[in-house]
Amino acid sequence: MTNQPNTTDINTPHNNEPIVISVKNVHKSFKLPTERAWGLKQAILNRFKGIKGYKELKVLNGISFDIHRNEFIGIVGRNGSGKSTLLKTLAKIYFPEKGSVEINGTLIPFIELGVGFNPDLSGRENIYLNGALLGFSNKEMDAMYDKIVDFAELRPFMDQKLKNYSSGMQVRLAFSIAIRAKGDVLLLDEVLAVGDAAFQKKCSDYFASIKGQQTVILVTHNMDNVIKYCDRAILIENGRIKLNGNPKEVAEAYNNLWNEQK
């Protein structure tokens, strides 16, 4: 493969497993409006003035990697490096201009917790709505429902409206849906460290327990978590893969990003 020099050889226990995600040379750029044509008038005026109205920003610049089944992958990088865009491309929310993303199996994306949560619906209704958004049928949700509620420890509140939950409880509910959702690949963007100490301990135990049994892609800034959970980590800088390999080395390289600048 061209232009992927920084892949350290790493023997994760999953190298022999089939590939579930294959990302090949993905390019993505956004048209950033310089003078936003919010209306017809501005659009027409801009055309007359010869203003293109946008400048192009390359966010992903040829990203390629494979993920094997049951691998726990960490994706790190500083703000604006292209992590979230990459994740949204994996989740098929964005479409790459060049390159391809192939996924074998179902991917459950959590770009944000509690997507579609509605404060005027009860906890129960929100679970089913959220499940439907992730592509689960009511029957599948029925099967998951008890586990979700138990994990969130919110059973007495399920018929209350979400707006009467504390913010911690809301996040706990959302997080429980995220980790109890049964899919082949779980995509988590910055969603660790929610709830109080006891709940965090529970999440940490849970992550340790699914390691090696579920494909997880985790985007985080917490290097401790990367070292603790990940089989492999990928460092992204300026839309390119800077390092793809051992979590410890990647964590080190990540911390060195700031030293380099100084």
Binding site: K92, I93, P109, L133
Partner: peptide
Amino acid sequence: GELLRKVCF
């Protein structure tokens, strides 16, 4: 809009 930016359906 918020929904479309976060999930794919």
